[in-house]
């Protein structure tokens, strides 16, 4: 017998302890917990991968709640933030970023990512000043050159949207990447310094003045020739009808036609201004897409 020689009371005590404390050394609990954490993490990652951001956020939060000591808690906080950003949920993204950055154990890389996304959230919420401030701080904190370049690209696009071409060129010139991406960024910066993009922009004031002087000229200024012809014909027809009604001494008809012509005329000015803004935005969007493609970095859609 193996237990021969042991006092019976000691055997009984050990067996009893075994019954009362099924896991006296905590070994299997530890492994089961790790397994549970892995399963929980995998579920959150799966949902995130499927683009179900809202459900993923819930699962990451569950992960943080159940496994607060796990080494992936910091990553879970940043994943929550990324999910909010992917779902375009900017105010919640700011809150999630602040929460993540309050974690003293957050690694440098994750802190950098949180700052990058916080800056993006501020910009998307319409606070470019604060966004620029946060992103500049992120550039100081981040050590990964790819991330730093991504932030610079976003800042370049931000400044382009505000028409600050000097700042756009400056951001692009600072891109650290070697090879084709770096070369592409510097080429874009050089083109901007030469005024290639700003020269293609159109002035809403010029469009308005041209449209006021000659209906259709505002649209022609934008290269919208078909629209220009339509605007010219409609305005010409109603103006002609008004003049004809006056000549034929039809005051009621002349008044109605004049009123309609007034609408077409003012609408022509409004349309010129609106389409100028649209033209400038399309120009920026195309440039931004080209920049992302050529550098292989996407600043605006991280």
């Amino acid at each position: 017998m193996l237990l021969k020689g042991f006092p019976r009371w000691l055997v009984a005590l050990l067996v009893g302890l075994g019954v009362l404390m099924p896991n006296p050394f905590g070994l299997s609990v530890c492994c089961a917990q790790e397994q549970d954490a892995d399963i929980q993490w995998a579920l959150a990652e799966y949902l995130s991968g499927r683009g179900e951001h809202y459900r993923a956020i819930t699962e990451y939060e569950r992960f943080i709640f159940y496994f607060p000591q796990d080494s992936r808690v910091g990553s879970a906080r940043v994943r929550i933030l990324e999910s909010y950003v992917a779902g375009k949920w900017w105010p919640e993204g700011v809150k999630a970023a602040m929460e993540a950055m309050e974690d003293p154990e957050l690694s440098g890389e994750l802190r950098c990512r949180a700052m990058e996304l916080l800056g993006i959230c501020h910009v998307r919420m319409g606070d470019s000043g604060k966004g620029r401030e946060v992103l500049s701080s992120a550039l100081e904190v981040c050590t990964n050159p790819t991330v730093r370049d991504r932030i610079r690209l976003f800042m370049a696009e931000l400044e382009a949207g505000l028409g600050r071409w000097g700042a756009v060129a400056q951001a692009l010139e600072a891109v650290e990447a070697a090879g084709d991406p770096g070369r592409a960024a510097r080429e874009h910066a050089a083109k901007i310094r030469q005024g290639e993009l700003s020269s293609k922009e159109r002035s809403p004031w010029t469009a308005a003045v041209l449209a006021a002087l000659f209906p259709g000229a505002g649209h022609a200024y934008l290269g919208r020739w078909e629209d220009a012809a339509l605007v010219f014909m409609v305005n010409g027809a109603f103006l002609g009808a008004t003049v004809e009604a006056i000549q034929k001494k039809q005051p009621a008809l002349a008044g109605g036609m004049a009123l309609a012509e007034l609408l077409w005329y003012t609408g022509n000015i409004f349309s010129s201004v609106s389409n100028t803004h649209k033209h400038n935005r399309q120009l920026l969007q195309e440039w931004s897409r080209g920049l992302s493609l050529e550098t292989g970095l996407s600043g605006s859609q991280p």
Binding site: L230, F270, S271, S274
Partner: peptide, 12 residues
């Protein structure tokens, strides 16, 4: 005005 703008810019 937006309606007039839409009618004018539809072609382009």
């Amino acid at each position: 005005f937006f309606l007039v703008d839409r009618l004018f810019h539809e072609w382009s």
